[in-house]
Design a protein around this nucleic acid. Structure first.
Lengths: 231, 231
DNA sequence: GTCTATAACGAGATAGAC
DNA sequence: GTCTATCTCGTTATAGAC
């Protein structure tokens, strides 16, 4: 039996690489949801589940159900479960690395670092699933991301580290090790995505809350910026 | 065949919740490793696997093999997989909360925060498995830890938050929101455990490396302490 | 308490009709 | 391209001998 689905309007979430326009299903005529391409719907459903329950905690059937396709159909698009998982990961890599790529050399250090914090926190707010998925990968030793990420990320990090080193040399920044500064930036910002449950349990708030988001940006910026400022 | 188990004195596991004397297997006569109690061996093996691959990524058989018991025997000690998992979690809770418990009211803020950073980083070094396991739990929405942790942790955090608030009120600390400061402390320190693969991929070092550990403590302390110092 | 054997089930993947 | 049916295997959990 065919199942009628509730249309569900697309409340435009627009701008930024951070957004996820392709995710939302649109309505064609009356009741039948139309997905531009089913592949994207599957990837999207998979992301949502993998990022919470991991590869083994998620069944193909669950993904299929969520994507509103059958298991058989899913396996027409993706040869097997692992291929699906890796596809999700690879598709997400650019989004994931975007904030660091934008880490600007041309700005003053406080500006560059402050902006980076804001972007990363926006990522934690808009794409917590991405954050969680990469976190899960890391915890397991990045078996499937290993090589892909290692080379690309390493290069990127070394680039940005050079910038930071230059700032320190120019006396524009307190003498911090670039790697540790970057880890601190990652740690403080990703925490709000990966430990969102804990954050909301303790504060009663979510980054979706506009005021709380602003307050978070402000606090993280204050701590880190003052932490690396020249006295 | 019944196997003779050496009673084996409990060589006091002494200092710090952070150490893990019970893990190491010892040799009795010639070649046979003797475990004080099998239950502990199972819990230990389970922790190692669960903290990497999660509940669903780990099979009972793998745990049994690692603990050097049979699957059947394991299920004599723990009724089912989930009970084993929860036992691991519960046994670890005190260890996990220890650093925050020691967060001292009697010290000066810089001292208290600096010490806390050191203790948390020592935890990331000595018990990365604990850190990873709780991280996995959080990512999944803490389904099994939820109530246990929520109440206890919440109380503890509120206590410490009051201390921080008092410091701020007394002008001993820059005006930071206690919650965000605590999140920053957690994020920066736990990152070295949960993302250890990434850290070692980018720096070539581990917290086990004495010099790197010292350097890490120093950098994190510098950033955070200067970040919350009164100007 | 500890073992082996096996029942019972879930999930990944394939086959083949439409 | 999409579906249903089915094969197959790994895993959980139980039964029962020792």
């Amino acid at each position: 039996m065919p199942k009628p689905r509730v249309p569900d309007a697309n409340s435009g979430l627009s701008d930024q690489a951070v957004s996820r326009a392709a995710r939302v299903s649109r309505v064609s005529r009356a009741d039948k949801p139309v997905r531009p391409d089913k592949r994207a719907a599957i990837l999207d459903a998979a992301l949502g589940l993998f990022s919470r329950f991991g590869l083994h905690g998620t069944s193909i059937d669950q993904v299929a159900t969520r994507a509103e396709v059958t298991k058989g159909n899913l396996l027409y698009y993706f040869a097997n479960k692992e291929e699906l998982y890796v596809s999700v990961l690879r598709d997400l890599l650019d989004v994931w690395l975007a904030p660091l790529r934008e880490f600007s050399v041309d700005q003053a250090p406080e500006q560059a670092i402050g902006d980076y914090i804001r972007r990363k926190l926006a990522m934690s707010r808009d794409r917590p699933d991405a954050s969680r998925l990469f976190c899960l990968e890391m915890i397991q030793g990045a078996p499937l991301l290993g090589t892909i990420l290692d080379g690309e990320l390493r290069t990127l990090v070394e680039q940005k580290s050079d910038v930071i080193r230059a700032w320190v040399a120019d006396g524009k920044l307190a003498p911090v090790d670039p790697h540790h500064l970057i880890f601190a930036l990652w740690g403080t910002t990703q925490h709000y995505a990966d430990f969102a449950v804990q954050v909301s349990a303790l504060t009663g708030k979510t980054l979706k809350d506009v005021a709380f988001f602003a307050q978070t940006v402000e606090n993280v910026q204050r701590i880190v910026l003052q932490g690396v400022a020249v006295r």
